[in-house]
Design a protein around this nucleic acid. Sequence first.
RNA 1: GCCCGAGUGGCGGAAUGGUAGACGCAGCGGAUUCAAAAUCCGCCGCCGCAAGGCAUGUCGGUUCGAGUCCGACCUCGGGUACCA
Length: 844
Amino acid sequence: MPYDPANSEPRWQQAWDEAGTFRAVRDERPKYYVLEMFPYPSGRIHMGHVRNYTMGDVVARYKRAQGFSVLHPMGWDAFGMPAENAAMEQGGHPRDWTYANIATMRDQLKPLGLSIDWSREFATCDDGYVAQQQALFLDMLEAGLIYRKAAVVNWDPVDMTVLANEQVIDGKGWRSNAPVERRELTQWFFRISDYADELLTSLDGLDGWPEKVRLMQANWIGRSRGLQFRFDTVNVPDVPQIEVYTTRPDTLLGASFVAISPDHPLARSLEADAGVAAFNAAARKLGTSEEAVETAEKLGLDTGIRVRHPLDPDWQLPVWIANFVLMDYGTGAIFGSPAHDQRDHDFAVKYGLPIRATFGKPGMTKAEADALVAAEPFVPLKSEPVTYVRGFSGEADQTGEAAVAAAIDHAEAAGYGEGVTKYRLRDWGISRQRYWGCPIPVVHCRKCGTVPEAKANLPVLLPRDVTFDVPGNPLDRHPTWRQATCPRCGGEARRETDTMDTFVDSSWYYARFTAPHAQTPTDRADADYWMNVDQYIGGIEHAILHLLYSRFFARAMVRTGHLPEKSAEPFAALFTQGMVTHEIYLTRDDRGRPVYHLPEDVRDGKLADGTPVEVIPSAKMSKSKKNVVDPVNIVQSFGADTARWFMLSDSPPERDVEWTASGAEAAAKFLARVHRLAEETGAEDREDADLTRSAHRAIDEVTRAIEGFAFNKAVAKLYELANAIGRSQASGEPRRAVLRIAAQLLAPMVPHLAEDVWKLSGGTGLAVDAPWPIPDPAALVQDSVTLPIQINGKRRGEITVPAGMAQAEIEQAVLADEAVRRHLNGQAPRKLIVVPGRIVNVVA
RNA sequence: GCCCGAGUGGCGGAAUGGUAGACGCAGCGGAUUCAAAAUCCGCCGCCGCAAGGCAUGUCGGUUCGAGUCCGACCUCGGGUACCA
């Protein structure tokens, strides 16, 4: 019987199903919790999903074979904007669209044969999940973790609606094309910044996380030590002082201007002036994203106001409004030190402000330092020693770090400022003026003010009868939904119409999976047993926001009693996988615009009519570029195992992988070859010690590759094992014994084929239940080693010696080597380096 | 702009500071076949007849020895707080 995945894959899936193989149960085994970031139900699964879930499945099946009780769940990150956009574009209801997508994607996912406990599946828009998330919200509110304050949003003045940053394109609304304004709204916030220091210092303990993610989070939290002080204004009685925060107080004598945010109270108070009003209005049209603000042209406006320098009351500095100073950071005001900051330097040059060096390279005079910074700022590392030419505290020769500390000491002693620690991390605004999200369970009572909904009244569910034919929040204009009863006084109240940021939904789903049907957010016994997630797998794009919010949320859940102490860090290990890419094929129309073509319409770089196509390699798959490969087609034509095998081959998991038709065919060919090998084992029993040794080396190497998340290397080792089996003369039971090892090693990656091979080679029961093999140590020892010989660092020969040969003996053998004698030409070597078991280098 | 990554044959990639190119794809040659597909075997970084030389994005440094460590730069990708 040839390899026939279309027939065998569903059969094995049914066998696992009937045996309840993947149901996660609490028992006496040690537990292992594998979680892949759950998908947004966008419509269809794509190759990125296949790759992500296959990787998780390898880990889950491998750990299961090692005797762990494995929890490997799946769910849906189901609230979010695309459902509302679909309703606006095609009509229909976001709820129907979402659940239909979930049904489609579940049907597409199941044939992949993932070892998922489907009984735990949920969507974040399910009434049960909404109910428990609202209960969590109320507990967090009571614990003082939530508050309201004013914050700015992108406002589309034509559509009269709030826009997400991605809906703002070049400062304009994506539908209306109207210039976006910043508008202040009162919004709900989580006090994540209360945990800034803990979230930062705890990163050190996350050994199972990639260093790059910890670094990104640390930079995001951005702890800084600096000086907070005040400039006294000159003749502005309403605003006697401007509060400033700086991380470089050592450059205070190099200050040449003060810059305030267009949203600074002083800037606002000056808007009676038409010039200021126009400048501020233009600045507010940049939208709210940091990227837009920071990449926009740096512009300033001199207010005419002057402030006194704190170290010299006779020295006055101009106050400018600058479009790059954000009200959200620090105090919304800075002083510019052009000599030692690129942005300030650009600003000073543009507006003709003075550039005075505070320090120069070691030993420089004041004149030399000023010359140094005239054209370019001098910005050395803070740890480098420099010479202060306009210092006022500490030594003249010191590092920036020492100078900053000395400047803070000076300010505190003299009483004009104080050293403070600040964080870049801001509180988490969760209010969304949108329909398709979890309602915030609060009412506004005329008498009692803002009152939390009573837990007995949960869940607060979204009304079904809404339409999306006009922009804006349907909850706001619903005829009855907003009418509520105040839980405190029983009087008339108005329901909160903001819904929660969808990052809230994904900040605790991992905890909910431990008890998805509980009538409380979590079940204590289940959480105690299953938490924490032992291996979390997902895209690097979530390195900061999702993972930081989840780390905060876990702490909030510990504080409100929903998770045990040990769960403050919910993800013990994290792996970030790369994207699946595909070439883009395009031709040009008569006006030079690109016309994209589907991969199946392109053969040998040409269309069917012979037109050659341009090829863009390694591009992120996107529908509009027509370079999407649908996993369903791949599974139908080659089988799930081929899709899985290819997604694990070649590229290391953390890097992008390019989908190619030839790669998929190669994967299919290999799997068919393995199947053939299992069918042709021969009747007569014949041993092959070399093959057995190869099999045990493969156990060792594949095990280590899986442990190290190097699935591409595990694949390479399995190719080698298959090649060894193909070459070997072993037959009968000895050959089948090796094939059973191969089946076990293949099982986490291509589980269906592994079952075929297991059965063909005489395995008992299911391969999925076979314990992970352990290599025979005797098969792993090497009795001789080949050492390359370098002469002056260049490889000139090699020598094979018994393993463990004494160094002196190796040296003798090397000196006797012909190539060495030829190069040494009778001279004694200057140096002879023997790295045991590795290499020999002769320095002539 | 700022933060974080990545860059190695025609292609995907391998390589605790120690033989650069494991394994696979493509290509080339052969076997099998009436023929083809499939399968099996062999070759395969570049230049060179060879000896040898050149090669891990670019330039410089540390080292007996650098793809790996350090510095500067280039290109591409992720994030940038309301995409998920």
